[in-house]
Design a protein around this nucleic acid. Structure first.
Length: 162
DNA sequence: GCCAACGTTGGC
DNA sequence: GCCAACGTTGGC
């Protein structure tokens, strides 16, 4: 990792039925497996670095919302679930000697006392412009600006522990 | 449940 | 290489 690289911010989507903020609270740290989209793969492999911050977003949920924050503790490395025929995300074309898919490790920072719902996001001048709010946004990881990161903390009345 | 917005697959 | 068919994501 390059020295003095500025911390970057991301939003990770997860369906809570698959993996929720409560799962991360109890696990403390997890590997973010199962990404099978090349654009998102490139972010995991090339762009997301240790120390980067993550907004944890519940998709396909009631309510759909940003539910907490996490930090990246391990940079991109091969997603081993792609090699496991019994895994839901098995990909027979991913070669262990030249892996197709990557993941990172993230650790919980905090679960928000009250989630920031899509309606909350829509109502906020800054947050309404987030990439996740764009119509047809289907990438499971999208970049977040520092301004957006701060706006979310303002909405929750929480601090970003530095 | 519906459907828009993609990404992937496979025939040609 | 083109493109129609199909599958998936995910908000509404």
């Amino acid at each position: 990792m390059a020295k003095n690289r500025k911390r970057q911010y991301w939003l990770f989507k997860s369906e809570p039925s698959a993996y929720s903020i409560d799962d991360l609270v109890s696990d403390k740290t997890t590997y973010w497996d199962g990404v099978r989209n090349y654009q998102v793969r490139n972010m995991l492999r090339d762009d997301i670095q240790v120390g980067d911050r993550v907004l944890f977003y519940h998709s396909n949920a009631k309510p759909m919302a940003i539910v907490g924050t996490a930090k990246v503790v391990k940079p991109g490395y091969p997603d081993h679930t792609a090699f496991d025929p019994n895994d839901k995300h098995y990909d027979r074309k991913s070669d262990p000697d030249n892996p197709t898919w990557f993941m990172v490790d993230v650790s919980i920072i905090q679960k928000f006392d009250s989630p920031v719902t899509r309606d909350d996001l829509k109502a906020d001048t800054v947050a309404s412009g987030m990439a996740v709010m764009r119509k047809g946004s289907r990438l499971s990881i999208v970049p977040v600006t520092e301004e957006e990161w701060q706006a979310i903390h303002q909405l929750t009345g929480t601090k970003d522990p530095r």
